[in-house]
């Protein structure tokens, strides 16, 4: 039995602790906003925060999240439903196309802005280049991050 907190809620999970966090949140907890893209830490679609740090949940065993705080895309808006500044900026810039990569993109962007409230182009590139967008929305992602930084 592995205990952890997911989006502020205590959870006890009875599963092989080697199971990647990605599949635990999707299949055990029904939080399907976190996506499977590559399963090999190559695309960032599965990005969640563990104790505030962005991690690739497809290669992070549940055991590593034991006793920690996991935040998924479903958990970054305020409890009253007010969207995070990054989400607002994403809508403003009409970032998503197919949208499949965007949970991961947003989680990486939120983590970046927490670390660095005013990132340069290079900072954004280096924080975001692990997140693939096959729809190629990079210029919009970058613009939205800058907007969110200004608003934050």
């Amino acid at each position: 039995m592995v205990q952890l907190t997911v989006n502020g809620k205590a959870q006890k999970i009875d599963i092989d602790p080697e199971t990647p966090v990605l599949w635990v949140v999707r299949e055990q907890l029904g939080l399907v906003g976190t996506k499977f893209g590559c399963g090999a830490s190559l695309c960032g679609a599965c990005t969640v925060h563990i104790d505030g740090e962005p991690v690739r949940s497809c290669v992070t065993p549940l055991s590593e999240a034991e006793g920690k705080d996991v935040t998924t895309i479903e958990g970054i808006a305020a409890p009253d439903g007010t969207l995070h500044a990054v989400q607002e900026a994403w809508i403003k810039h009409q970032v998503p196309q197919c949208g499949y990569c965007q949970s991961g993109q947003i989680m990486s962007a939120v983590a970046l802005l927490k670390e660095n409230a005013n990132p340069s182009d290079e900072d954004i590139d280096s924080a975001m280049s692990g997140n693939v967008c096959r729809c190629g929305m990079y210029t919009r992602i970058k613009a939205a991050i800058k907007t969110a930084a200004k608003g934050a």
Binding site: L31, V32, G33, T34, K35, F36, T72, I73, E74, A77, L83, Q87, W90, I91, Q94, V95, P96, G99, Y100, Q102, S103, I106
Partner: peptide, 14 residues
């Protein structure tokens, strides 16, 4: 379709 694609509620096949 965009609002549902920024808060994780958009439903894909998977």
């Amino acid at each position: 379709d965009i609002p549902a694609k920024v808060d994780g509620t958009a439903m894909f096949g998977i």
